[in-house]
């Protein structure tokens, strides 16, 4: 019934799109994380002039579809080509790759900022007070106390953002990038065998997402030695106590 040879060929063809899928995922995710942290700090600054724009940004970016954002950047900004050329930004905005990265990063920053904010809010006041009593302040306090606790708290939810990012990169295929979904679309229209192509592409995405989920769970395990029982904690003391 199922043509195994075709399935295998399809799988191999789709694998050539994996590097671009991963590239889009990690580059956009890294930029998105930096922006998300900035937005979260703006929201928590208690300064109206910083809080209000961050709030509006999150509302707009979360309330509109990612594909509309991609089109607005890729096709919409093309309208301002003379201005962009004048500013020297046209090199950047004419490349579908950079438009996809920009849209994915801006979108992910909006969702991610809420997760980061939740993590930062979960840092107990008494820990901060204790650190201040020991004479820590500013960056040292943030690096030693606030960030580790917030990171631990936010990691599982932030891991979900990474999985969503993997799935979101498929939209880059609509603006001509040939990552896994882009190749899959080409294969469907050339062979007209959507089921086999779907199975092969689906398996690739599930494998990527499964590995990332496992990696995040392992990182989470390493970061939370205090939540493991005493027996488990003593087994891996040197890794967890750092």
């Amino acid at each position: 019934m199922m043509d195994m040879a075709f399935l295998y060929d399809t799988f191999v063809a789709l694998l050539s799109g994996v590097p671009l899928t991963l590239n889009l995922t990690f580059v956009a995710f890294a930029i998105g994380t930096v922006l998300a942290t900035l937005l979260a700090l703006m929201r928590m600054s208690r300064i109206k002039a910083l809080d209000a724009p961050a709030r509006a940004y999150v509302f707009v970016l979360r309330g509109t579809p990612l594909l509309v954002q991609i089109f607005l950047i890729y096709y919409g900004l093309g309208q301002f080509r003379p201005t962009l050329q004048h500013l020297g930004l046209w090199q950047f905005f004419r490349e579908p790759y950079w438009c996809a990265i920009l849209a994915l990063a801006l979108n992910s920053a909006a969702y991610g900022s809420e997760v980061v904010r939740g993590g930062l809010r979960s840092v107990p006041k008494r820990e901060v007070e204790a650190a201040r009593a020991c004479g820590m302040s500013g960056l040292l306090l943030f690096r030693r106390i606030v960030m580790p606790i917030a990171l631990r708290q936010a990691l599982p939810a932030y891991g979900n953002e990474l999985i969503l990012m993997v799935k979101a990169t498929s939209l880059a295929s609509i603006i001509t990038l040939t990552e896994v979904t882009g190749i899959a679309a080409q294969l469907i229209s050339s062979s007209y065998r959507p089921v086999e192509v779907f199975i092969a592409a689906g398996a690739i995405y599930l494998a990527i997402n499964f590995s990332l989920t496992r990696a995040i769970a392992m990182l989470d395990w390493r970061l939370t030695p205090h939540l493991r029982g005493p027996a488990a904690a003593t087994g891996k003391m040197e890794g967890g106590s750092a």
Binding site: I163, K167, A168, T169, S170, L171, S173, I174, T181, A184, A185, I188, Y192, P194, V195, V197, F198, A201, G202, Y205, L206, N209, F210
Partner: peptide, 22 residues
Amino acid sequence: TTIFRGIPDLLVIYLFYFGGSL
């Protein structure tokens, strides 16, 4: 639930549109 939460929606739409027509 695992499959359809782990695969991009765009692929599912391709499957339903082209597969459904088939």
